[in-house]
């Protein structure tokens, strides 16, 4: 199976460790991962902000780059949701690659049939299911099943876990006050757990949550769950 990594622009620039972790996990499981370097950005920000014409070349670029692979994996529920749900509405020819583009937990659990990726992580972790993974991709408990199989990891519940953290792309700036109020409640819920780490499937939401926790002086760290799975046991 030819697996391609779609790193996403946010991860490429700000969170390369998440991408390295995805490569590590898949190679540990015996798969070869390719990184086609003509990839750039999925165009979600443009599309969701109302700039369809500006998103279109990015959609086309993605399809050209990834159409030849059996599976495309991205460490972002939100970007995968954009590809899977919105691409076919932009270009009908995208339907094929859209259906073969997976968020990491989908590739591991559904396609490769794995829940134990051989990781260890001696920390208390809580998990925030980010909205597009939760309600567009319906990831359900797939990321949690992967985390539960990690050695030495203690997973604790998060009150109001399914409530949006308030990120929402440009919403965080356009409606900064409302976004900040939502973030406040999310940070309070996180601080009420015993967790050392808050994990999620989207680094963009985690940048927002982490920025809020850091502003409050909280010692709790944010981490993409791929980085937890990428740690060796």
């Amino acid at each position: 199976m030819r697996i391609a990594l779609f790193i996403t622009c946010v991860n490429d620039l700000l969170y390369p460790e998440t991408g390295k972790a995805v490569v590590r996990i898949l190679e540990r499981l015996g798969h070869k991962v390719e990184f086609p370097d003509s990839q750039t950005c999925c165009g979600q920000m443009h599309a969701n902000s109302g700039y369809r014409a500006e998103a279109l070349p990015l959609v086309r670029g993605f399809v050209e780059t990834f159409d030849r692979y059996d599976a495309v994996v991205a460490p972002s529920g939100s970007c995968v949701a954009m590809v899977r749900e919105s691409y076919p509405r932009f270009v009908p020819a995208a339907a094929g690659v859209a259906s073969r583009t997976y968020e990491l937990s989908e590739l591991l659990v559904d396609v490769l049939g794995v829940t134990d990726v051989g990781a260890a992580f001696p920390h208390v972790v809580t998990y925030h299911p980010t909205c597009h993974g939760l309600r567009v991709l319906r990831l359900g408990d797939k990321p949690l099943r992967l985390l539960r199989a990690v050695a030495d990891l203690e997973l604790v519940g998060l009150a109001g876990a399914e409530e949006c953290c308030g990120f929402g792309g440009t919403f965080a700036m356009k409606n900064a006050g409302v976004s900040g109020a939502m973030l406040d409640d999310k940070c309070t819920a996180i601080e009420q757990t015993d967790a050392d780490v808050i994990a999620a499937a989207d680094n963009s939401c985690l940048a927002h949550i982490g920025g809020g926790l850091s502003r409050r002086g909280s010692p709790i760290r944010v981490m993409h769950y791929a980085e937890i799975l990428g740690g060796a046991s």
Partner: peptide, 13 residues
């Protein structure tokens, strides 16, 4: 409302 991350080091690519 929140601190912002800075890009440092090396990009993934």
């Amino acid at each position: 409302y929140r601190d912002a991350p800075l890009p440092v080091g090396e990009s993934f690519r």
